[in-house]
Amino acid sequence: MAPDGGESADASLAILAEQLAKLKAVLIRVPDQAAAAQAVAELATAKNWKKVAYHGHPLLRPVAAALPCEAWEADASFEKQKLEGCDAGLTTCESIVAQLGAILVSSASSGGRALSILPHVHVVVAEAGQVVPDLGSALALAKARHGDQMPSMLSFITGPSRTGDIERILVLGAHGPKELYLVLVG
């Protein structure tokens, strides 16, 4: 009954790519970790980022180390005012829902609540194996992973922040990130 999420991993990835494009989120497919670090570094250069906040996660530390600008491990010494001044936030995620192009982040996977919402740009680095077909699978996975110890926040992010409040005309970057990048490894 719900929209199709794909019967195979390849089908899911194809649907995901299509959905993300419609949402104006940018999907960057890379073969390995090193290429992910390079892709993010290139983004930082192209967009002229001065300061990037990142979640202290084994997948992200090498990416942060390769950045051509200041990188700050936000969850190690969190300060909201400092985070407000960052150009981009770099996080991992729990899973990715192909059916809707939604990325499930949590306070556990993404360095708390603010890192994935306050900076002007949000970059998610994930592995292709984290893509699940539909919303039900993502919720079941979160339940299986966390049991009755759910992170205090779980958030499905479906494209960059948006509003249609003025004359129902779509504008990206209402209060949350104006740009959303998903760097998918593998």
Binding site: Q19, A74, F78, G112, P151, S155, F156, T158
Partner: peptide
Amino acid sequence: GAGQPMTCYNTLYSGPRKKGECDG
């Protein structure tokens, strides 16, 4: 409601900041 596949943010909150979380 809005003709979208899903709204931009759908968030589940299960309490105040938990032990080990940096904000909230």
